[in-house]
Write a protein that binds this DNA or RNA. Structure first.
Lengths: 165, 165
DNA sequence: TATTGTTATACTCTATAACTATA
DNA sequence: TATAGTTATAGAGTATAACAATA
């Protein structure tokens, strides 16, 4: 039940939605990274798990394109996951330049852990809201994401933020 | 008017609010930085303008504490703004170790430009929502921000995001 | 001895270019 | 010649330590 009496006064200056989204979003990303850290993973790692789970057999190029990660960086990330036995590079018969990336059994186990962590993270972040309000929030943000042309399920990361020098 | 018929089926899996906040927030931060770039400013610069406007005479320590910017980095940012005539370091009579930071006339002019850019940014980001929905969104996010202990008006930036290595 | 502003340095992430092996 | 993966390198942001002047 919001107060609706603003008669005669200039519209009350509220913090802009854009600023709040950036502020809370940055906080959310930091908190998620903190929850991932005990698993020995970073947010980009989690993105790789999620995308490979939905699209097994992707090449590194394709995976990097989806996640917005440059090939030169993706190599390192995949190396780390392969070294720990979560991802494997399978040779492709038709094109011997590229690999087909798959989650291993251990990889799928870790994917479950990531999912659990993500749900805990969501619950903690939205603690101030009831279930209906969380759906409202997700709906509003989902509409913005769609109108802005954001790819569902892909966190854009941060490109060039510095603008001064 | 949302569909409300989910009888018997498991609750439909929606993208979590936490993920959407991080995704849209990252996008918003990138877009804001792009709008700031033609002014020769970065988001941290804009934060300095905003905080100094509300709290003239702050020391660098105090300013850095509010913005979550380390002294070693803040020196460089303030140097840049001082060199361009937007900020001045005034000697303080009582403590000759520190400066009192103030916006100059040109600085206040640039502050107006930043405000204009911020309003354009907000309008563009929320294009998918009507005025009432924007207020709803701001209200929901504001409650999360408060419950999570975020300082009003302060973008936390991104601390240690990597967790793997 | 502690604090303010500053400098120096290391580490991470981003971005570009160049190399190799295939195609 | 073009592409997939890889390596090397440069640039920005973040973090820590150390220093000079002052408290």
């Amino acid at each position: 039940m919001q107060e609706r009496s603003n008669l005669g006064r200039p519209p009350r200056r509220r913090t802009s939605a854009a600023f709040l989204v950036a502020q809370v979003g940055s906080h959310a990303a930091t908190k998620f990274a903190e929850r991932l850290a005990p698993l020995g993973l970073s947010p980009p790692h989690a993105g790789i798990f999620r995308v490979l789970s939905a699209n097994p057999g992707l090449s590194q190029q394709a995976l990097g394109a989806i996640l917005g990660i440059l090939p030169s960086r993706l190599v390192i990330l995949v190396d780390e996951l392969e070294k720990r036995g979560f991802v494997e590079r399978r040779d492709t018969p038709d094109d011997r330049r590229s690999y087909a990336l798959h989650l291993t059994g251990n990889g799928n186990g870790m994917l479950d852990n990531i999912g659990r962590v993500a749900r805990e993270h969501d619950a903690a972040l939205c603690a101030a809201l009831n279930e209906k309000e969380r759906e409202q929030l997700a709906s509003l943000l989902g509409r913005i994401a769609e109108e802005q042309g954001l790819t569902p399920g892909v966190h854009p990361g941060f490109k060039r933020l510095g603008g001064s020098k």
